Simulated scan of single mutants.
Amino acid sequence: MLIREFVDQDWSQVWPIIQEVIGAQETFTYDPAMTAEQSYGMWVEMAPGRTVVAVDGGRVLGTAKMGTNKPGPGAHVSTASFMVAADARGRGVGTALCRDALTWAREQGYAGMQFNAVAESNRSAVELYRREGFAVIGTVPGAFRHPTLGRVGLHVMYQEF
Score class of each variant (00 low, 15 high):
A119C: 01
S124V: 10
L128S: 04
M157G: 08
G112V: 14
V77E: 13
A80T: 15
A135D: 02
R151D: 15
A125V: 03
A117S: 12
V152L: 09
N116T: 12
V140Q: 10
V152C: 12
H146T: 11
H76L: 10
A119Y: 02
T103F: 00
T79M: 12
V126T: 01
R91F: 08
R131S: 04
E127C: 03
R89K: 14
R91N: 09
R89Q: 14
G133F: 06
A80L: 15
S121K: 04
R130K: 14
H155I: 13
R123N: 01
T139R: 14
R91C: 06
R130M: 06
S78C: 15
A117N: 03
G142P: 04
F144P: 03
M113T: 14
A111Y: 09
Y158A: 08
F115I: 13
G92L: 08
G153F: 13
R99L: 10
H155V: 07
G90H: 06
E127H: 13
M157W: 12
T103L: 01
G112A: 13
V156P: 00
G90Q: 06
D100C: 04
Q114V: 15
G112Q: 12
G150I: 12
G138W: 13
G150D: 08
A96W: 08
L149W: 09
S78R: 11
G142H: 09
E120C: 08
S81D: 05
Y158I: 06
N122Q: 05
E107T: 07
G142S: 11
H76P: 07
A80F: 15
S121P: 02
A105W: 10
V126Y: 01
G133P: 07
F115C: 03
A86I: 10
T95K: 15
F134H: 04
V77R: 15
H76R: 15
G94D: 06
A125P: 00
R106V: 10
A119I: 05
G109P: 10
I137C: 09
T139L: 10
A117P: 05
R151T: 13
A143S: 04
N122I: 10
G90A: 03
H76Y: 15
L154S: 12
F144E: 02
R145F: 12
L97K: 09
A86Y: 12
T79K: 07
M157H: 08
Y158Q: 10
L97G: 00
G142D: 11
Y158P: 00
R130D: 05
W104C: 02
G90I: 02
P147I: 12
V93E: 01
E107F: 00
A101E: 01
A105G: 02
L128R: 04
T139N: 07
V84G: 05
V152W: 13
H146K: 08
R91I: 01
M157N: 01
G142Q: 12
F134G: 02
H146D: 09
S121H: 01
L128M: 00
A80C: 15
S124K: 02
W104F: 05
T79F: 13
V118T: 02
G142K: 08
A105K: 04
R145M: 12
L149P: 11
V152N: 05
F82M: 08
A105Y: 06
T103V: 03
R145H: 14
A125D: 01
V140R: 14
E132Y: 08
R131V: 03
Y110I: 03
G112H: 13
V84F: 05
E107R: 11
W104H: 00
F115H: 07
F115G: 00
A101C: 14
H76F: 15
V156Q: 13
G94I: 05
A80Q: 10
A105N: 04
